[in-house]
Design a protein around this nucleic acid. Structure first.
Length: 576
DNA sequence: TACTGGTGCGCG
DNA sequence: AAAGCGCGCACCAGTA
């Protein structure tokens, strides 16, 4: 089949008997329709993908794509109706009277989603409306039409199209990350646990070093039975022993000299490792040499991904040594240096900040420019500027930045002002912050009423400032998430273009699609890990930086901001 | 027994 | 006990 003759879009929907595919031409008009039995779907998609390479349109990527990946089928592009709806229905860039903004079955419902929740699609039952977006073809075609109208009518159709495409690419990548998994050395993980926590007693019970720390705490407190895991009980025991803390947080405990404190801090550290990433975590989440977390694209209001199960986005540094390439393979570990400040420079058009970032550590650039005295000051000040710090070291330093980078600061200050006034802010590509809650509005209007008390006013002011800090950060964090999606999407294409290796080094544990191929193995806001056959490691490392450059141009055109990466080719992801 | 809210800590 | 954003998860305690 020739490329030019194929449909630009293929919309998939469920029917009672199987799947129905509607082929649309580039203008969106339906040209044909075909019924496909469930067992034939993977083959049909694989054929269409290689013959026409359409953009696949479906109601929910994990439900369609996870089974395809399991059957060894990969697609290049999709349009995820659920994720796109969520963006368009609440974007300030879309006209208020656009049909996509009306109440519908596509509105968020059914809670967080991930590829763990796939089975409903291939059961014959109708999925209850509350469980998620509709899976049938007619609903998909109607929603696609509404979305295309909304995009065309939006303030900047080019940006909105880019955002929806990037979000959808993210959905594909999340499913692929889950399918491929992060190479995980369970034996190394076990060694780390045993080293840190001590041997596990054969008869069960806490490991040796954890038990020893607990014993020392109880002895120092003179309370042989006190529970260290119950905050109220521990707090009372500390008070009885004369440690007058208001909480049991590490931060506050560390300021006291009592002999119970060092072993208690030790205990908390070990107990944390044990409960968050201990042997039971290993048992539950690592199988076949892979950690397969469930990623939730768009799971955070700002557009960042969330994760569900396994705590994928909280991999403790302590355990990074357990991330280990397969034999004959390498890891490319790359993280963006100061992503959010660079994004802020770009969206505000602040040439001074962009200059401080160019070709170097951005914080060092701020020091070189004589704005602040040292790197740690620069870092704390810039974070404070983006988060809305008003006091402490950070708040104290922000005015210096305001003088040096007036445009960047004006942008975040304005975002905060809008938020405090109950308004909506948007990212560079057009994702909007949620409106204030009714409770928030009530609080504000009560405070402006004639009979408002001082307490009403200060409470309202506090909540207004809280919201201002949220919207201040939203524009930066949200745009950084968009840049990261563009980075991932571009990198994914570059990796897929590399020739697969075969034979003993094919790494079948990565599943049928990724066998022998470089693939993304982890994504963490501003960091990626690529798992690659050793022969492609250098090329993959170059691709990671080239994709970052491409993402910068895609979002910000010729604005002179660069996105510098720290890239390492290694066998483990352990931090130096 | 199942839930919700608070606390604390890990990550960016 | 964070100051200063966004998360997920484990655990406990109180309630239904």
């Amino acid at each position: 089949m020739d490329d030019a003759g194929g449909p630009g879009w293929v919309v998939l929907g469920r029917s009672r008997a199987g799947v129905v595919a509607a082929m649309l031409d580039a203008s969106g008009a339906e040209v044909s329709r075909e019924s496909i039995a469930d067992q034939g779907l993977a083959g049909w998609v694989a054929h269409a993908e290689s013959a026409w390479g359409p953009r696949w349109v479906w109601h929910d990527t994990p439900q369609w794509y996870a089974p395809l990946l399991a059957d060894g089928v990969r697609v290049a592009r999709c349009h995820d109706l659920r994720l796109s709806h969520a963006i368009l229905a609440s974007s300030a860039a879309v006209p208020a009277d656009a049909a996509v903004r009306g109440a519908s079955a596509w509105d968020a419902s059914g809670g967080p989603r991930g590829e763990g929740r796939a089975p409903a699609l291939f059961e014959l039952e109708d999925v209850p409306a509350s469980a998620g977006p509709p899976a049938n073809l007619e609903a998909a075609l109607e929603e696609l039409q509404r979305q295309q109208v909304a995009i065309a009518a939006s303030a900047d159709p080019g940006r909105m199209r880019l955002l929806v495409a990037a979000e959808s690419a993210g959905a594909l990548i999340a499913a692929e990350l889950h399918a491929a998994g992060l190479p995980w050395d369970a034996a190394e993980h076990d060694r780390i646990l045993t080293d840190v926590l001590g041997e596990r007693p054969p008869g069960g019970g806490p490991p040796a070093k954890l038990a020893a720390a607990a014993a020392r705490v109880r002895e120092s407190l003179g309370d042989p039975a006190v529970s260290l895991d119950s905050q109220p009980k521990l707090l009372r025991a500390l008070h009885r022993a004369g440690v007058l803390v208001e909480s049991t947080s590490r931060w506050e405990l560390a300021r006291h000299r009592h002999p119970a404190v060092p072993p208690l801090l030790e205990y908390k550290k070990l107990a944390r490792l044990q409960s968050a990433n201990g042997w039971s975590w290993l048992e539950e989440w690592v199988a076949g040499g892979r950690f397969r977390p469930v990623y939730v694209p768009g799971g955070v209001v700002t557009g960042r991904w969330a994760s569900s199960g396994g705590g994928a986005l909280q991999l403790p540094r302590q355990l990074r040594a357990a991330v280990r390439a397969d034999p004959g393979w390498r890891l490319v570990v790359a993280d963006v240096a100061q992503l959010e400040p660079r994004v802020l420079a770009a969206i505000s058009g602040d040439l001074s900040l962009a200059e401080a970032a160019r070709g170097r550590d951005l914080y060092a650039g701020i020091v070189d420019g004589g704005v602040l005295a040292d790197r740690s000051e620069a870092k704390v000040a810039l974070l404070g500027a983006m988060y809305g710090a008003t006091s402490g070291d950070s708040g104290r330093l922000v005015p210096r930045l305001r003088r040096a980078f007036p445009r960047a600061m004006a942008l975040v200050d304005e975002a905060a002002r809008v938020g405090e006034d109950g308004g909506t802010v948007s990212t560079w590509l057009g994702r909007s912050s949620p409106p204030p809650t009714q409770a928030w509005r009530d609080l504000q209007s009560r405070a402006t009423g004639a009979d408002a008390s001082d307490a009403d006013e200060s409470r309202a002011r506090r909540h207004a400032r809280d919201r201002g800090r949220f919207t201040r950060n939203f524009v930066v964090q949200g745009t950084a998430a968009e840049w990261a999606l563009a980075w991932l999407a571009d990198l994914r294409i570059r990796l897929a273009a590399m020739s697969p290796v075969d034979g003993a080094d094919a790494a079948p544990r990565s599943g049928p699609v990724f066998q022998g191929r470089p693939h993304l193995a982890l994504f963490l806001h501003d960091e990626v890990i690529v798992h690659t056959p050793a022969v492609h490691a250098d090329a993959a490392a170059r691709a990671v930086q080239e994709a970052a450059d491409a993402a910068g141009r895609l979002l910000f055109g010729t604005f002179p901001i660069d996105f510098r990466l720290d890239v390492r080719i290694t066998d483990t992801a352990a931090k130096d």
